Amino acid sequence: MTELTLTKTRIRAGVWEGVLSGSPAEPVLDVQHLEKPVVGVTVSVVPERAGEWLVRVPVPVELLSEGVQTFLIRDAATGEKLQHFTIITGVAMEDDLRAEVDLLRAELDMLKRAFRRHCLETMG
Rank of each mutant, 00 (worst) to 15 (best):
V43T: 08
V55E: 04
P58L: 12
K112R: 14
T7L: 11
M123R: 10
D30Y: 07
V68D: 09
G90Y: 03
V101H: 09
R49P: 01
G90H: 06
T86S: 15
P27E: 01
E107N: 05
A106S: 15
G40C: 13
K81N: 10
G67I: 01
V46R: 10
K81C: 07
R116C: 07
G51C: 01
R49I: 04
A92L: 10
V43C: 03
E52I: 00
K36Q: 15
K81H: 07
L64K: 00
V59K: 02
V101F: 10
L72P: 03
R10Q: 10
Q32W: 12
A76K: 13
E26W: 05
R116W: 09
R117M: 06
A25Q: 14
V57E: 10
A106K: 01
T5R: 11
E3S: 13
D109A: 14
M1W: 08
E100Q: 13
M110A: 14
V28E: 12
T5G: 01
A106E: 15
D109K: 14
F115V: 13
E52M: 05
L6T: 01
M93V: 15
E52D: 04
P37M: 02
I73W: 03
H84G: 07
A13D: 15
D95G: 11
A92I: 07
P60Y: 05
